[in-house]
Design a protein around this nucleic acid. Structure first.
Lengths: 342, 342
DNA sequence: ATGAAAGCGCTAACAT
DNA sequence: ATGTTAGCGCTTTCAT
C-alpha cells in the first residue's frame, strides 16, 4: 500500500489539512511546518493519489484526444503536439481511435470514460452536422478539430482548407501548369476537407479564367498512400493528360508520385505535384514534396487553450468559437522545375 | 451534475447496492428488479463515474504507454496497436512521451500520474540496466519494451534484433553483395538496438567468412530520416565503396536512399538497401524498401497479456519473464535486382 | 435476493 | 496558521 496523506500527517505531526495545504501550495503556512511536511513526504516517498483527488475535486487532469487513427502521419504528428502541449500544462492525454467510424465515435463520446476526463479534443470523421444535437448534449468540455462539423455547438479549430488549396493550385498555375488534377475529390461529399479543398481548387481556376475539366477531378476513396497510388494508376490507364497534381493530402500525393515515376514521368518536369499537410516525410522523399503547412502547432495551441478555458469556466458563457489557422505554401522540389539535383 | 448511482436507485426503488450489482452483473438478481434498474439507468442516461469506481476498487482501467515520441512512425504504429488491443479489453491508454530523455523517463515513472494507472508499458530509451534498482522499486505493474534494459526486474518483450539483422545481412549476401554497410551503428553503445543489430551484422559476415571492414561500419546519431541522409552524404564524400546497405531502421534507410539516388546511384542495381521495422511507408517508396518485420503485433499482444496478468495478480509470484517475437524478412524492390518496373 | 453502512484518499468548508 | 469534519460516487463486507 502506498503511503497516504494521513501517513505524511502522522510523521510530520500535523493534520492532513496542513499536508493538503502544502501539496496545493496554499500560501499561509509557517516555513518550519512546511519543511517538516516536505521532509515527511520525501522520507515516505509519498505521491498524491490522483484518483482520489479527481473524485473530490471533479478534475482528473486528463484530456481525451479522439482521432481516426495513429497510423496516419498527420494524426500521429498532431497527437505528438497535443501530448507535448498538454504535458506542459500538467495534463495527461488519453488517446482513443475511432477509425473514422460514426458508431465508434458515438460510443466513445457517450462512454463512461469520457466522464473521467476534464475535456475532449475531438477530430470527427464519422459524425456530421446532423449530429449537432447529440454533441450539444455532451457536458464534458470539448473542442472540435477538423472540418466534418463546421457550425457545431462547440468551439472549433481547424485549418484554412479552401484558401490553402487555392494557394496550392495558384502555385502550380504560377509555374505555368494548366491541366491540374484535383486529386482526392469526393463529389458526393457535401462537407469535409474533400469538399473544401475542391472549392479552393475551383476558386483558383476561376480566378485564372480556366474552365474546369471534369476529367481532371479525381476521386480518391480514403486518403492513404495506397489509395492515392491506386487512383493514379487508374487515371494513367484512362490516358487522361495533365501537367500538375493538386493532391488533397500528402499521403495520396506520395502514393501518386510513386506511380507517376514508375510510369516514367518525371517530377516536376512532366508533372508537378503539391500536397497538403506538411507531414514530416515530405522533406525526404524523392523529389521532396511541395505542400501546404496547415499550421498544426497553432491548431493545438488554440484548441488546448480554449479547452482549458472551458474547463476552468473562464469562457463559460461564450458562444461556440471558431478559429482558422494561418497556412504557408512550402515550395519544394516537386514543383521546382530546373531545380538542383533532382 | 450527472446522475449518480443514488439517483438510479431512487428511481428504480432499490438500494444502491442493487444498482451496483446490476452494473457489475452480479448473478443473483431477480430479473424484474434488474429490468427496473436497467430502465432507470436508461431514462436517466446514467453513466458510472469511473473515477469513483477507481478510487474504491483500486483499478482505473487506465494503462500508460511511455514512448520516446509519436513522430517516429515505428512508435506511432506501435501506439496504434496498443490502443486497439487495450480497447478490446476495456482499457484506455494514456500516452506519455519521453523524448528518449533519461530524466524525463524518471520523472514520468515516479510522477503521480503513474499512481493513477493500472499498468505501464515502458519503451525505455534513456534508462539503462544501471537503473534496475529504481525500476524494481516501482509498484505499478510494468512491462518493458525494447532493448535498452534486457535483464531488468520486470517482464520484457522485444524483437529479435540480432537474428533479424543477421537475416537482413544474409539476404544481401544471398543476392551477391559483398561490401555491406552496417548503417546506424553506434560503437560506443554497449547495449541497445544499435549494439544488437551490429552483432547480427557481424554474425552474418562471420558466417560467410567475410572480414569486417571498419570503414563500412557507419555511425548514425539518432535514427531519423534526416540523420540517415546526413550520414550517407558524409560517407559518399569520403568516397567509401559499397554495394549494399544494412540499415538499422527504416527511417535512416529512407534518408540514405534519398541521398544515394540524388548522387545518381541506382537502387538496387548499384546499391541494395534493406531496413528494419516494416514501417507502413516502406511499401510505397521508390523503390519499395526491403525490411525486417519485427512482429509488432506479437509484441503488443504478449506485452498486454503479461501486463494484465500482473495487474490481476494471476502472475503474481512469477519472476520477470522474457519474450522475443518472431520476425520475417520482407524482400521488396530495394533488394530485387532486375525486378519489375523500377 | 437485497439493504445498511463503512470507507477508498483526498479537498474544502468551517472552526479555532 | 492549523485542525475537524463532511462528503465526492462507488464497491464491498456484513446483515437480513
Amino acid at each position: 500500500m502506498p503511503p497516504t496523506i494521513h501517513d505524511v500527517a502522522r510523521l510530520a505531526e500535523v493534520s492532513i489539512k496542513t499536508v493538503s495545504n502544502v501539496l496545493n501550495d496554499y500560501p499561509h503556512i509557517r516555513p518550519a511546518t512546511k519543511q517538516r511536511v516536505l521532509d515527511a513526504i520525501a522520507t515516505l516517498d509519498y505521491t498524491p493519489n490522483l484518483t482520489a483527488r479527481g473524485l473530490r475535486s471533479g478534475r482528473t487532469g486528463l484530456v481525451s484526444l479522439i482521432i481516426p487513427d495513429l497510423r496516419n502521419a498527420y494524426f500521429a504528428e498532431l497527437a505528438d503536439i497535443v501530448v507535448r502541449a498538454a504535458e506542459a500544462q500538467g495534463l495527461s492525454v488519453l488517446i482513443a481511435q475511432s477509425n473514422g467510424d460514426r458508431e465508434r465515435e458515438l460510443s466513445l463520446l457517450s462512454g463512461p470514460r469520457m466522464q473521467m476526463v476534464d475535456g475532449i479534443l475531438f477530430s470527427a470523421l464519422g459524425l456530421s452536422a446532423a449530429d449537432n444535437d447529440l454533441l450539444a448534449r455532451i457536458r464534458t468540455p470539448m473542442v472540435l478539430l477538423g472540418e466534418r462539423i463546421l457550425d457545431g455547438p462547440k468551439d472549433h479549430v481547424t485549418m484554412r482548407n479552401v484558401e490553402g488549396t487555392q494557394a496550392a493550385t495558384e502555385h502550380l498555375l504560377s509555374i505555368g501548369r494548366r491541366r491540374l488534377l484535383a486529386f482526392g475529390a469526393d463529389p458526393e461529399q457535401g462537407t469535409g476537407s474533400a469538399r473544401l479543398r475542391l472549392d479552393g481548387y475551383r476558386w483558383a481556376l476561376a480566378g485564372a479564367g480556366i474552365a474546369e475539366d471534369p476529367d481532371l477531378v479525381v476521386r480518391v476513396v480514403g486518403w492513404y498512400r495506397s489509395t492515392g497510388a491506386q487512383s493514379m494508376r487508374r487515371l494513367l490507364e484512362r490516358g487522361v493528360e495533365f501537367d500538375g497534381v493538386v493532391a488533397f493530402n500528402d499521403l495520396i500525393a506520395l502514393g501518386a508520385m510513386r506511380v507517376l515515376q514508375d510510369a516514367g514521368l518525371r517530377i516536376p518536369e512532366d508533372v508537378a505535384v503539391i500536397g497538403f499537410d506538411d507531414v514530416d516525410e515530405t522533406r525526404y522523399t524523392l523529389p521532396t514534396l511541395s505542400t501546404i503547412d496547415p499550421g498544426r502547432e497553432e491548431i493545438v495551441e488554440v484548441a488546448l487553450r480554449w479547452l482549458t478555458e472551458r474547463i476552468d469556466g473562464s469562457a463559460a458563457d461564450l458562444p461556440p468559437r471558431d478559429h482558422l489557422t494561418a497556412f504557408r505554401v512550402l515550395q519544394r522540389e516537386s514543383t521546382t522545375p530546373g531545380g538542383d539535383g533532382s
